[in-house]
Amino acid sequence: MAPAAASSQRLTSRRISYYASLIYFVIIIFQVPLFRVPCRSGMCTTPIQVTSSQLIANEIFPPAVVKALLYPGAVASSLVTNMTLPSWSNLLHMYNLTEAKNASALLDLQRLEILAGSYFCVAGALVGVVNPGRMTLFGTLLVVWGLVKEGILGKPANTDPAKAVYVYPTILIALVCAFSSITYSIKKAARSTQPVSVAKPLKSSAKSKLK
């Protein structure tokens, strides 16, 4: 392959990875609904909501950090519905997180894949804008597996139709973006692991052969 063609291919791959990471960031941070599962705050529809309910329940970070995660999505939702800005002080109440610490921890234990995957989705979205990596794909696959396990295999069993698991079509977009965002990094890693040619030793001179 000509150097110019190879350079153009790398540039195209890098652009695809960047834009895929950017779209994934928008989906996660602005809380585009991907699924619907029971969580400590009631029903969660995004990885950020699942993550926030866990952070509040276990008091891992101060409430201000959780509010910072929730606020972009709250702003987007409020502007779409009633063209107003949400109150910062009322943000936890808006997401029903004020009583999350009193909710049963069994909800998290039953859905460890979705919980862990949501953590990776949020972290991967934040890091991926600067340096796309495999965290987004790993998190998204974990969430998908957790949804498949509960929706198809029926684990854990759910008898309440109001709390039934639901998967939105947007999760396919998130999965495609997560996969596309790591394309360039995988190719880069493959090139870096290629064996390095070792220079052959110089042939001995004719004088040394005579010896």
Rank of each mutant, 00 (worst) to 15 (best):
M1F: 14
A2M: 12
A4E: 08
S7P: 11
S7M: 13
S7D: 03
S8H: 04
S8M: 02
S13C: 06
R15L: 12
Y19N: 07
S21Q: 06
L22P: 04
I23R: 04
F25N: 02
V26I: 15
I27S: 04
I29Q: 03
V32K: 11
V32E: 04
P33E: 09
V37D: 02
V37F: 05
C39W: 07
C39Q: 05
T46K: 09
P47F: 00
I48Y: 06
I48W: 01
Q49G: 14
Q49Y: 13
T51K: 09
L55S: 00
I56T: 05
E59R: 05
E59T: 11
E59V: 10
P62F: 10
A64D: 03
A64T: 00
L69I: 08
P72A: 05
G73M: 02
A74V: 05
A74K: 00
S77P: 14
S77A: 09
V80N: 11
N82E: 01
N82Q: 13
N82P: 01
M83G: 14
M83E: 13
T84P: 02
T84W: 02
S89R: 01
S89L: 15
N90R: 12
N90W: 09
L91A: 01
H93S: 07
M94T: 01
E99F: 15
E99G: 10
N102H: 05
S104K: 01
L106F: 06
D108H: 15
D108P: 13
Q110W: 03
Q110G: 05
R111H: 06
L112A: 15
L112N: 12
E113F: 11
G117R: 02
S118I: 06
Y119S: 03
Y119H: 11
F120M: 08
G124R: 00
G128Y: 10
G128V: 15
V129Q: 14
N131L: 07
G133P: 07
G133Y: 13
T136L: 07
F138N: 11
T140L: 04
T140F: 12
T140M: 07
V144Y: 04
V148W: 12
V148D: 10
E150S: 02
G151I: 09
G151R: 12
L153E: 10
G154E: 08
P156C: 13
A157T: 08
N158D: 04
T159E: 08
A162S: 15
A162N: 14
K163N: 07
A164M: 13
A164K: 13
V165N: 07
Y166F: 13
Y166K: 15
Y166S: 13
Y168S: 08
T170W: 14
T170P: 11
I171Y: 04
I171M: 15
I171A: 13
A174N: 01
A174T: 00
V176K: 01
F179K: 15
T183G: 15
T183N: 09
Y184Q: 03
K188Q: 09
A189S: 11
A189H: 08
A190M: 01
R191T: 10
Q194G: 06
Q194R: 10
P195A: 10
V196G: 08
A199I: 15
A199W: 11
A199D: 14
P201C: 05
K209Q: 05
K211Y: 11
